[in-house]
Computed example of a mutant assay.
Amino acid sequence: MQKELPEWFDEEAARAEEQAISGQAVNKDASGGPVKPVKRINKAFQVEEGRVAKWHLLVAMEKGKRRGHKSGPELIDEALDLLFERYGI
């Protein structure tokens, strides 16, 4: 059984995240510093039908994490980096 977090915890976590995103973090070491916006372009990929459910599950699992979660685009970036490394690019 998980211990329930105090009421103020979610509010403070949300406030810290907003400060980090805006670059106004009070404690830059704690927040990881200002977040630089990433310029993205749309690129259409076709995915095998059997992988779609796993993809949605992975994204949902990451969104469910309180800290350190990755968005769908961040997961795609990670996957591409792994492919680039594997193929020496």
Rank of each mutant, 00 (worst) to 15 (best):
S31L: 01
W8S: 12
E18K: 14
V35E: 08
D10R: 11
W8V: 14
A20I: 05
M1H: 00
S22F: 09
A16E: 03
A14T: 14
K70M: 00
L82K: 13
R67C: 01
A30T: 00
A44F: 03
P37F: 11
I76C: 00
Q19L: 13
R66M: 09
R66C: 03
E12M: 13
L80A: 15
H69W: 09
I21L: 15
K28F: 06
K54Y: 05
L5T: 08
S22A: 15
V47R: 00
H69K: 12
P37L: 04
A30V: 14
G32W: 10
D81K: 14
R15E: 12
H56E: 06
F45V: 13
V59E: 07
A79Q: 03
S31D: 02
P6S: 15
W55Q: 05
I89N: 05
I41E: 15
V38W: 05
K43C: 09
R67N: 06
V35F: 01
A30K: 11
A20R: 14
E12D: 14
E12I: 14
V26W: 06
Y87T: 08
V47A: 01
R15Q: 12
E7S: 15
D10P: 07
E17N: 04
G64W: 01
N27K: 10
L58R: 05
G68M: 06
E62V: 02
E49Q: 15
I41T: 15
G23Y: 07
A13C: 07
F45G: 00
Q19W: 05
I76P: 04
E74M: 03
Y87K: 08
K3E: 15
K63N: 09
H56Q: 10
A16Y: 02
G72K: 06
R67M: 08
V38S: 03
R40Q: 05
P34D: 05
F45S: 00
G88N: 15
I41R: 15
G33Y: 02
D29K: 13
Q46K: 14
L80C: 13
A44N: 10
L83K: 07
L83N: 05
